[in-house]
Write a protein that binds this DNA or RNA. Structure first.
Lengths: 179, 179
DNA sequence: TCTAGACCTTACGTGAACGTCAGGGTCAGG
DNA sequence: CCTGACCCTGACGTTCACGTAAGGTCTAGA
């Protein structure tokens, strides 16, 4: 996050493991509106292309808490939950973030969404809200830096690859016109 | 490699571990010309920003064999070796390939370089060489597909991020002009 | 020649992100 | 009400990409 260079090592980063009093993951932005239809963990996993274990693990580390449970204790996932899983996978595979960094990004997104939602409400001090939003915005812009750097690096990589392909194809073309 | 979708799982992929008769990694394309000045593993590690262990590990799994050894058995790395390390890190961090996939890409690059070098020589059958180059070219183009897909995905991600930033900034601007 | 420091091999340890197994509980459909 | 498929919570296992420690070796420099 603070070292977007191509030689950056996978920094350790503090982790929150199974012992340490579950953090009650903001289960999504504070949209406590109707979550729509809820699905089982099996259906959720299939829909997202991840394993049951992965979903339970995401919950373990405070990344994603299913929107509901049946009276018997079975997990029930909403569409927002499924979207969140997609987001997690995206941050993981696309940006190469570890789940700790993913959590940081998601927490920021959640805060931003919450603040945006209640921005016009009178509940909080206006100045304080502006402060919070500014802070969240800063995190967001640093993320943009990371992504931009990565995209540019990928573009350079792609240019190289294309150049190599061109050279070899040139070689073959020459051979055809000569031979 | 065959599934560039954002939900692709980290496929297992066969690995070659410490027991299985070292594969004598083409230590670089068959450029057996003067490798230039050779440096110790410590200097190499420092120059590339990786650990000594990493360099030895890359050798263990057949990714990179140092160009030389001292009579006493100390590893000596050439500039080409250092470049190769850079390439490894690039494929790892930029494309998110595991070291098995990295090895596949590098083996392909080595083959391509070798073939390019001896393309005009009489040593091999001309048809056969063209065949080989075509094959290597195909691998290369599939790599290009992967990279392009990833770049595009990143671009979309970036667009989203920018849109979010704009929306929040708009929110703040409105607040200023109103309040 | 001699030593400090870098390096060697071997081998066990580690953290992230799950996989998998055991021993039970839940629930929709018949 | 009953079954079979699905799900629960531990808890231990696994893979990757190294980290780290032990005990001995090599080599540049004084």
């Amino acid at each position: 996050m603070n070292d977007p260079s191509p030689t950056s090592r996978p920094q350790p980063a503090r982790r929150r493991r199974r012992g340490e009093e579950e953090p009650a993951t903001l289960p999504a932005p504070a949209t406590n509106a109707d979550p729509g239809p809820l699905v089982s963990i099996g259906a959720a996993a299939a829909a997202c292309g991840v394993s049951l274990r992965a979903l339970r693990y995401y919950q373990e580390i405070g990344l994603l808490t299913p929107s509901g449970r049946t009276p018997g204790g079975l997990r029930r996932y909403s569409q927002a939950d499924l979207d969140r899983v997609g987001r997690i996978r995206e941050l993981q595979t696309l940006l190469g973030l570890n789940l700790d960094e993913v959590r940081a990004v998601l927490e920021n997104e959640d805060r931003l969404a919450t603040l945006r939602a209640e921005y016009r409400s009178e509940s909080t001090d206006a100045l304080r809200r502006r402060e919070l939003i500014h802070e969240a915005l800063a995190v967001r812009m640093s993320l943009r830096e990371t992504v931009t750097a990565k995209r540019d690096a990928l573009q350079r990589f792609l240019d190289d690859t294309n150049a190599q392909i061109d050279r070899v194809q040139q070689l073959l073309d020459d051979d055809v016109t000569v031979g």
